[in-house]
Amino acid sequence: KHDSSPMEQLTQKVLRSYQETCQLGSEELQLRRWDTFSREEICTYQRQARPPGKMWQRCAGRLTEAIQLVVEFAKRLPGFLELCQNDQIVLLKAGALEVVLVQMCRAFNGENRTVFFEGKYASAELFRALGCHEFISSIFDFAQSLCALHCSESEVAFLCALVLVNANRRWLQDQLQVARLQGQLEVAFRLLLRRTQREELLPRLPPQARLRALCSQHLEQLQAFLRLHPGLLPSAFPPLYRELFT
């Protein structure tokens, strides 16, 4: 009886969309959470990343792969492809990186501040060659704060869906339709939290502004990097990354 309710069906679809488009399963990520890069491996990484932009290119590549999966997640979300094409693009352009940042909490070990990157867990030190240590620290801080909430897979799935389906994004054509979908997702999320006795999660979630600030910082850092290395574009970064961020 419970399973047949429309909201329960929506919950199952959101979770399935999310699981079908995850790069790595949470069990595998948990099993490998102490498999960290050694000091020597970090040095090798930093040597390899020495030519200007090598590490930026590498990270942009990984980020683009993650964003492609966010697009697939969006396509599987109930109601998303029924939105007009303009609004699908607006929501993804504004929200794809935010979704990746939320998903990062699954691949983050808060006990030693490392994140899963190219096969192992890496400390912020590995990303030093990017030349934006403060920004990387802010991302790690965000992941740590989300990690501390110990979200279930269903909760992360809804957080991602609600980051994406946000009727407050600028340039939406049919704001009402996006708001309707957002409302349905919010109701299903609240029902899930009530059922699992996790209602305390909502007030503890990081504010939306924090995600927005991280995305703005990413753009600022990218622009600063491009100013320093004007010859690198257009070939250095994946086409989708360029389309979204430059």
Binding site: V71, A74, Q85, N86, I89, V90, K93, P239, L240, E243
Partner: peptide, 17 residues
């Protein structure tokens, strides 16, 4: 917007992925 985001638009249209 579609013109400016051809890759994103194509990914959204691609039903095989």
């Amino acid at each position: 917007l579609k013109e400016k985001h051809k890759i994103l638009h194509r990914l959204l249209q691609d039903s095989s992925s």
